[in-house]
């Protein structure tokens, strides 16, 4: 890990022939939904390699399996057939503990904000800090500076109900991106997920989107973004 930290945060396109470690390695991956007669294949023999620092944008028509692949990589779904390695760990057929460990290394930006209505913005983000086992004093400073950077500085102790839609969108990545390694900067790997029902402003690909801002502010993430929108927009 130590030598990797010297690599600049750029897209994979700029690193040329440098042998960067593979962050995501998908081989021969099949996935099915349903059981028995209703069993339907969603992924057919998928291959994908994503290197550290790359930003991958995947588009496709509705029902083509983007979300299925994304959720498999994001460990939100159990891999069925084929090989799926994330951060060097084989997820197909692995045990729960390994999955939990991989999950703690990943950030996932959801379409919906999924914040607890009963907790304040601060407490919602703190759920992630507690999971990372951060010292409460350090966590407090980090949460405050993060929420301030995302434009929520004056709303730290507000509940989601009193935040605007965009503000909730801003908060959710901070909810998702905590590294378990206290020495590293927090956002490590993130998987933003967007569909066409989001406006341009909150799309993860726009300059002002939370995912883009978070990606720019940190040093070396691997980002995979999925959309049904043409990128040209």
């Amino acid at each position: 890990m130590t030598d990797q930290t010297t690599i600049p945060a750029t897209s994979g396109a700029f690193v040329g022939d440098l042998q960067l470690p593979l962050t995501v390695q998908v081989k021969n991956l099949n996935h099915f939904f349903g059981e028995g007669e209703l069993r339907k294949q969603a992924l057919f023999d998928n291959y994908l390699e994503v290197r550290r620092g790359e930003i991958v944008i995947m588009t496709g028509p509705s029902g083509s399996g983007k979300t299925t692949l994304l959720t498999l990589i994001g460990t939100l779904r159990t891999a069925q057939e084929g090989s799926l390695k994330v951060l060097g760990k084989q997820l197909q057929g692995c045990d729960r503990d390994l999955i939990v460990n991989v999950r703690r290394e990943l950030g996932f930006i959801f379409q919906a904000h999924n914040l607890f209505e009963s907790l304040t913005a601060y407490q919602n983000v703190n759920m992630a800090a507690e999971l990372a086992g951060l010292d409460p004093m350090i966590a407090e400073g980090r949460i405050k500076s993060l929420l301030t950077r995302l434009g929520l500085g004056d709303r730290i102790h507000y509940k989601p109900k009193s935040l605007s839609g965009g503000q909730k969108q801003s908060e959710s990545p901070s909810h998702g991106d905590w590294s378990t390694n206290p020495n590293s900067s927090w956002p490590t790997n993130r998987l933003p997920h967007s569909t066409k029902n989001q406006d341009e402003k909150s799309s993860p690909f726009s300059k002002s989107s939370p995912a883009t801002r978070a990606a720019r502010s940190s040093w070396s993430p691997t980002t995979i973004a999925f959309s049904t929108l043409p990128i040209a927009s």
Binding site: V100, R103, R104, F108, F110, N114, F116, G176
Partner: peptide
């Protein structure tokens, strides 16, 4: 959805 998010985070 919130619990699922916590689960996805590694709880």
């Amino acid at each position: 959805p919130e619990f699922a998010t916590l689960k996805a985070m590694g709880y």
